[in-house]
Structure formats: structure tokens, C-alpha cells
Simulated scan of single mutants.
Amino acid sequence: MTAGERREPGRRVAVVTGAARGIGLAIGTRLASDGFAVALWDRDAGALEDAAQALRASGATVLAVPVDITDRAGVNQALAQATQALGAPAALVNNAAILGRSGPTIDASVDEWKRVFDVNVFGALHCAQAVVPAMVRQGYGRVVNVASIAGKEGNPFAGAYAASKAALISMTKSLGKEMAETGVLVNCITPSAADTDIFGVHDESQRAQLQARLLERVPMKRFVRVEEVAEMVAWLCSARCSFSTGAAFDISGGRAMY
């Protein structure tokens, strides 16, 4: 049996980061509907437990694990907790991210760029380094990194975010090639903007202006729905995805230039 044909474990366990709300919660919900036992990871313990309780009410097997993914020791502890309660993960979805401060790149502070990279890049790296070795040992695994269309084309006044997502795309390609013969497939998705809390804009007028600017670049003239992102991730986390690795899957409403 070749790496691409290896069968997934009997009990499917998924770890989803940034899972308390938005895209992460939609992904956790979708994977639970596919029969995964899901470990929801997020640093917002209160929102995380609310999300877990809602999923449990629907019959899902869910574990809420508060964790700051910028802390490697904390990630290791979260993985040990999830593995003890649910079993070794067969899927990892690196979704947690921050947008960072908006402003001209030439005026940005190095500390601000480091803050964004700590979450968006090094946080994903911590999770992959913690989870993937057990996947390799069991001969099966799926890693999905939630990047962004901004990582392909750059976003003005969001240089750190765009650069971090470009790094995540490149990391996906590198790790995918390294894992190609192990049964562990590593892919990423590059969505355009979803109307979620990541923007942190509460003034309705400012929010409307931001939405208009974002939608100008989307040929389909709408935001991606979190359920649409979750659907693509669900396929990439499944055994149905068997010959794609190191790839970036576009879900941008036609915005992608390549």
C-alpha cells in the first residue's frame, strides 16, 4: 500500500486552532458533522467553551482546550490533553491568525511584524512540529493551513499580515514535499475575506467602508462564507483527498491572479 493509499485511523480526531468563532468554529462544526472528534484550540477560554457546548448539544464529540499557540510548551500540553481525551490527531487545521495593525509598511514597527508572525507563522509551526510526528508514526495525517489570498497578491496597509500568509503558503509547500512519502498530506487554502471578527472594526460606518474596499477586488462581489471555507477544509482533511500535497487551494471568488 502506497502513502497516498494508506487508510485513515479508525477513530478520526482533528485539532482546529482559532476555533472559538468565525472560520475556525465553522471548520470544527463541519469536521464534527463528518464524524471527527474535534479538539477546539483557542486562547479565548470563555468563547471556546461556549462553542464547545453548542457543538456538544448537537451530539458532537468535542474537547475545548484553551491555548496560546505562540507558546510551544503550551502547544505540547494542549496536544497531550487532546490525545489523552480523544486519541492521536489524524487532522490538524492551522486556522488561528491575527490581522495586525493597519498602516503603511514603511512606517510599521518590527515589533508589530513579529507579533503577527508569532501567531500566523510560528504558531502554525509550533502546532505542526508538535502534531505531525505522531501522524508520521501512524502512517496517516492531514494538515491544512488557512492562509489567505493576501499571501499571493499582497494587501496594501496590511503588510505584516500579507507577508505572514505568504510565509504560511511557502511553509505548506516545503512541509508537503518533505512528508510526501509518509502518508501525511499538507495543503493550504487561500480564501478572500470573510466577514468575521478578525477585522476588529466596530464602528458601522468604518466597517461599511472596509467591506466596500475589500469587495472591489472580488469578481463575485461578495464575502466568502465561513461554511464554504469549512467545506473545502473538510475535503482536504479527509481520505478522499489522496494525491494533493504542498498545494494552495484558491477560494477567493475569482480574486486570485495565480
Rank of each mutant, 00 (worst) to 15 (best):
Ser164Arg: 01
His202Ile: 05
Ala39Thr: 06
Val218Glu: 01
Leu168Phe: 03
Ala37Val: 08
Ile23Ala: 02
Val38Ser: 03
Leu25Gly: 03
Leu168Ser: 00
Arg115Met: 06
Pro89Ile: 00
Asp107Pro: 11
Leu63Arg: 14
Ala108Asp: 14
Phe199Ile: 00
Ala230Arg: 02
Arg240Cys: 12
Leu25Trp: 03
Cys127Ala: 10
Thr105Tyr: 14
Ala96His: 00
Phe122Asp: 08
Val110Ala: 15
Ala212Thr: 14
Asp107Thr: 15
Arg11Asp: 13
Phe122Met: 09
Arg207Cys: 04
Met135Gly: 05
Thr172Gly: 10
Asp68His: 01
Glu216Ile: 09
Leu210Phe: 06
Trp235Phe: 15
Ser170Asp: 12
Gly10Ala: 09
Phe157Thr: 14
Ala97Gln: 00
Thr172Val: 15
Glu153Trp: 10
Thr196Asp: 04
Ile98Val: 06
Val186Phe: 01
Ile98Pro: 13
Thr29Arg: 06
Ser238Gly: 04
Ala256Cys: 04
Ala64Phe: 10
Gly24Glu: 08
Lys165Ala: 05
Arg7Cys: 10
Asp203Ser: 09
Ser244Val: 15
Asn120Asp: 03
Leu168His: 03
Ala64Cys: 11
Ala52Ile: 01
Asn95Ile: 09
Phe157Val: 08
Asn145Lys: 11
Arg21Tyr: 06
Trp235Asn: 12
Val62Leu: 07
Ala130Tyr: 02
Ser205Gly: 15
Asp34Cys: 11
Arg222Gln: 11
Val146Pro: 07
Ala247Leu: 07
Val75Gln: 05
Leu25Ile: 11
Leu92Val: 05
Asp118Asn: 15
Thr105Cys: 13
Asp50Tyr: 12
Met257Gly: 12
Asp118Trp: 11
Gln84Glu: 15
Ala32Ser: 10
Ala147Leu: 09
Gly22Phe: 09
Ala208Leu: 07
Lys173Ala: 08
Ala230Lys: 05
Asp42Tyr: 14
Phe249Tyr: 09
Lys165Glu: 00
Asn95Met: 00
Asp203Arg: 11
Ala208Thr: 04
Leu236Gly: 04
Arg240Gln: 13
Val132Asn: 01
Val15Ser: 01
Val224Arg: 10
Ser252Phe: 09
Leu185Tyr: 14
Leu92Cys: 08
Ala96Leu: 01
Gly200Phe: 09
Ala3Glu: 07
Asn76Gln: 15
Gly87Ala: 12
Glu204Lys: 14
Ser252Asn: 14
Arg115Ala: 13
Val67Gly: 01
Pro133Glu: 06
Ala160Leu: 03
Phe157Gly: 12
Cys237Asp: 10
Val184Met: 09
Asp34Phe: 14
Leu40Lys: 07
Val65Ile: 02
Gly46Ala: 14
Ser170Met: 10
Ala158His: 13
Leu86Arg: 05
Met179Trp: 10
Ala80Val: 04
Arg72Trp: 11
Met257Asn: 13
Arg142Tyr: 05
Phe36Ile: 05
Val119Gly: 01
Trp235Tyr: 15
Val119Ser: 02
Val146Asp: 08
Leu214Thr: 00
Leu55Tyr: 10
